[in-house]
Design a protein around this nucleic acid. Structure first.
Lengths: 347, 347
DNA sequence: TTGAAAGCGCTAACAT
DNA sequence: ATGTTAGCGCTTTCAA
């Protein structure tokens, strides 16, 4: 009874147990029609050989379904993304599916490279936080049965499911709050306008200012900061103006951290409201008022939607909005210099 | 020329281009020996059909190497773990390998379930932050060519590579620092002793106390807190004692956050040093002195070691230690009440 | 209840 | 330079 080298296969188990290949397959997959005595012999052989079914071969033969899904995000170590990843993974686990993930580092080429690798590995579906803005290449895939759901930013040139934050609405929440404290010169610190989320949040800022009857001073917009250090420098530039802003709206968590450092160092009286909540925001030297939303909810919704597509749902693409709320912690509840008494009424 | 249904295969490309299967394979894999004209025809067919090589079939035939590795960690959303995951992913990417990850939620059964799924998917190797304490079942796997590297905690009953933090040494750093400020009643807030890292850090605490000539007051050890809320309650219990500690050593990041909340609320004069650094620790109301180490370094080292094993390195298992350092931010540089002047000298 | 044969999509080994 | 054949480890189909 010569067994093959290396890792044992069903054939090895079969010859060890003295049964046919198919009987082993039946036992391994819990199919009925095997006498208990025979099944026991097979189980013994499996145990002694240390056999483990090869899932690659299984899904090759069995066709559709590798029981894996792919996730493409910016950076697995960023809390915003890792919250999404964790939520996706939890849903996948419930569907007996494993998660393969890759960090695009916000690079469109890298994104496509990862998507390709995932598709070659025949994932059952994709969840993508897009870095690029052209996803036509995924059209064929949808036809071939590999659905994709987009998160945080919409796909380019492709009709697909997408989960978005209510970016403009959240920004209005923040700016309205500052306006109600009596602020008018409200500076903005944020990432590049080329990012969908930045653009939407700036849109909300403009809408709120305009609705309150204020002209937007373009000099108060300091955009393009990808990290906290750049945001800190940008905020300092704002605070060094001859007529500095009395309040600052930072458009994401990195920018909020940078803005906070600059404000604490340069002009502690400046009000600050940030988009995105983050851990320990309440324990900071200046507890930070933020526009909160739930990244985990985005991940869960995206994954649930994806599995519905995998299970054959062919209804038109859906767009879901994650709602936002204002969390007051102190940094946003600061009046402009010279104002006293109760909150100013808007006219 | 009837093409098969669904996703196009090499066979489909071959018949579309009017060449043989093998020629397509040559073009797809960039093998030499195909005339440019023919290659171009094949490329055209690939483009029009939207063909994508099936990596499952490829690695099935080609034997060894699925170009995936598996990662089992406690919780993908915990910054400590996500830093590891990111570092592992970066190294994997350099080796043209994708990362499949699963969260064990610190549950040994779940850990084993995930490891099984990964092994059935024929990952080339495993990186495990173990929740369980018996890994004999991985012995067969090592024989079958699937190496495993353990991170943060050693494997149970298995000789394998492992990357550990210098837990005891880091704890000594923290406690010595507090002793030098003149503290003697140093309380400890931490997770369960059943966790390897907690046990090692407590060992360091005891060693430092003993070396300084102090008896350890067992009543000052409040262990078993898995999260910040439990740690906060535990710290309050310490601070409510008739002779409360004048300093606290918290044995991980969750416990540090809880301890900080309790200290700020109950006894702001209490010194605090925590194990594990965390983001914004310097911007807190009370900037926290910590024992810092580099989780990303653990991930990188583990991944590099794993790929060496995958590439056939059969030297004896290695154990690597990640070094720690003390970062002074203020919370640990507080004298006990009643002491004045320069730092007390130890005798 | 059990088994033999065919084949999933690809690559290795050998023709031509 | 190109094609044919066999077979990776499994499941499906059909037969005994």
């Amino acid at each position: 009874m010569s067994l093959s080298q290396g890792r044992p296969t069903m054939r090895d188990v079969a010859s060890t147990a003295g049964v046919s290949l198919k009987t082993v397959s039946r036992v391994v997959n819990g199919e009925p029609g095997v006498r208990p005595a025979v099944a026991a012999r097979v189980q013994d052989a499996i145990a002694t050989l240390g056999f483990r079914r090869n899932d690659l071969a299984r899904s090759l033969r069995h066709g559709r379904r590798s029981s894996t899904i792919g996730l493409v995000i910016g950076d697995l170590a960023n809390p915003f993304y890792s919250a999404i990843a964790r939520a996706v993974e939890a849903v996948a686990h419930r569907h007996q599916t494993m998660l393969i993930s890759g960090s695009s580092e916000e690079d469109p080429d890298r994104e496509r490279e990862i998507v390709n690798a995932l598709l070659e590995r025949r994932v059952d579906g994709l969840i993508v936080v897009p870095a690029g803005n052209d996803h036509r290449y995924l059209n064929d895939e949808a036809d071939n049965g590999t659905p994709a759901v987009f998160v945080d930013r919409p796909p380019g040139n492709l009709a697909a499911d997408v989960i978005l934050i209510d970016n403009a609405g959240g920004a209005v929440l923040a700016v309205d709050h500052l306006l109600r404290q009596g602020h008018v010169r409200i500076g903005v610190v944020g990432d590049a306008m080329s990012l969908y989320t930045t653009a939407q949040r700036i849109k909300g800022y403009r809408a709120a200012m305009t609705a309150a009857g204020h002209l937007v001073d373009e000099g108060l917009l300091e955009l393009g900061s990808h990290n906290a250090d750049a945001a800190e420098a940008a905020t300092r530039r704002l605070l060094e103006r001859s007529a500095p802003p009395t309040a600052i709206f930072s458009t994401n968590n990195r920018n909020t951290v940078g803005a906070l450092r600059a404000v604490l160092a340069e002009a502690p009286g400046t009000a600050l409201v940030g988009f995105d909540d983050f851990e320990l925001a309440d324990l900071l030297a200046r507890p930070v008022t933020v526009v909160r939303h739930d990244p985990a909810e985005m991940g869960s919704l995206a994954a649930e939607l994806l599995f519905r597509r995998i299970d054959g749902d062919t209804r038109p693409p859906r767009r879901k909005l994650i709602r936002t709320e204002l969390v007051q912690r102190g940094s946003g509840e600061v009046r402009p210099p010279g104002e006293r008494g109760p909150r100013a009424k808007r006219t």
